[in-house]
Amino acid sequence: MDLARLKQALQQLPIDTLLSEIPEVQNSIAHLLKSNEAMREFDPKGEDRDLTEAIEENQALMERHENRIDLTLRVIKERLGEAAAYEVGSNVDAFRKEHPTKPVVPENQKQQQEQEQEEGVFL
């Protein structure tokens, strides 16, 4: 569903359903993170193309979920006010700190990636 239609749908939800939207999406994100972690443990070198694609698909889905959460927060602010949006937003921030959706790259891999980029062809 595109964000415009999602916003319209969120604006029509009963308040209690609107407020339960974010925890449901966060639950989905938590499951996707666990799934990716399990696939990475099974194939730590990333040699299995199917697992690599599944991880990438999960990452893309988590990004869409994060956008959905942000949109839901905006609708909560519009419908319920700044205080409600702040309260829900603080819970979202805590969740995001505990469950980052962007994979954490170890420092030695970051340095290796930067070095590989520097060794590219420059015109």
Rank of each mutant, 00 (worst) to 15 (best):
94 A>T: 08
70 D>I: 06
123 L>I: 05
95 F>W: 09
16 D>C: 00
12 Q>C: 03
48 D>Y: 01
97 K>D: 07
79 R>S: 08
104 V>S: 10
9 A>Q: 13
77 K>C: 09
93 D>C: 10
117 Q>T: 14
50 D>T: 07
116 E>Q: 10
109 Q>Y: 12
104 V>I: 15
68 R>D: 13
51 L>T: 01
82 E>R: 07
55 I>V: 13
84 A>L: 01
42 F>N: 08
84 A>S: 15
119 E>Y: 01
111 Q>R: 10
65 H>C: 10
46 G>N: 03
26 Q>N: 05
18 L>A: 15
51 L>M: 11
3 L>P: 03
58 N>A: 15
53 E>R: 04
17 T>W: 01
59 Q>F: 01
98 E>P: 00
43 D>A: 02
110 K>Q: 11
76 I>E: 07
60 A>L: 07
115 Q>H: 08
97 K>F: 04
25 V>E: 07
75 V>A: 06
43 D>N: 05
91 N>I: 00
109 Q>D: 07
121 V>S: 11
88 V>K: 12
18 L>E: 09
37 E>Q: 14
81 G>P: 09
108 N>Y: 03
57 E>F: 02
51 L>W: 01
119 E>K: 09
86 Y>D: 10
39 M>D: 09
17 T>G: 07
70 D>M: 05
21 E>D: 15
100 P>E: 03
59 Q>C: 11
36 N>G: 02
108 N>I: 06
39 M>W: 12
33 L>K: 05
52 T>P: 00
34 K>G: 03
67 N>L: 12
14 P>G: 05
24 E>V: 09
58 N>S: 12
56 E>A: 12
85 A>Q: 05
47 E>H: 08
13 L>S: 11
93 D>N: 11
81 G>R: 02
28 S>H: 13
8 Q>Y: 07
27 N>Q: 13
34 K>F: 02
76 I>W: 01
103 P>R: 03
64 R>I: 09
44 P>Y: 00
122 F>W: 14
51 L>Q: 00
118 E>I: 00
85 A>S: 14
2 D>I: 01
16 D>W: 00
12 Q>Y: 02
26 Q>R: 07
102 K>E: 13
2 D>L: 02
39 M>Y: 06
1 M>V: 10
96 R>I: 01
66 E>Q: 12
105 V>G: 06
99 H>A: 02
9 A>K: 14
14 P>M: 09
36 N>P: 00
22 I>R: 04
73 L>D: 11
72 T>G: 13
52 T>H: 02
15 I>V: 15
99 H>W: 14
64 R>N: 10
106 P>S: 08
49 R>Q: 06
90 S>E: 11
61 L>N: 04
10 L>C: 03
119 E>A: 14
17 T>R: 12
112 Q>K: 12
87 E>G: 14
37 E>T: 05
11 Q>A: 10
65 H>E: 11
73 L>Q: 13
78 E>N: 14
61 L>R: 08
37 E>R: 11
92 V>N: 01
79 R>N: 06
112 Q>V: 10
123 L>M: 07
78 E>Y: 02
33 L>V: 12
89 G>R: 01
65 H>V: 02
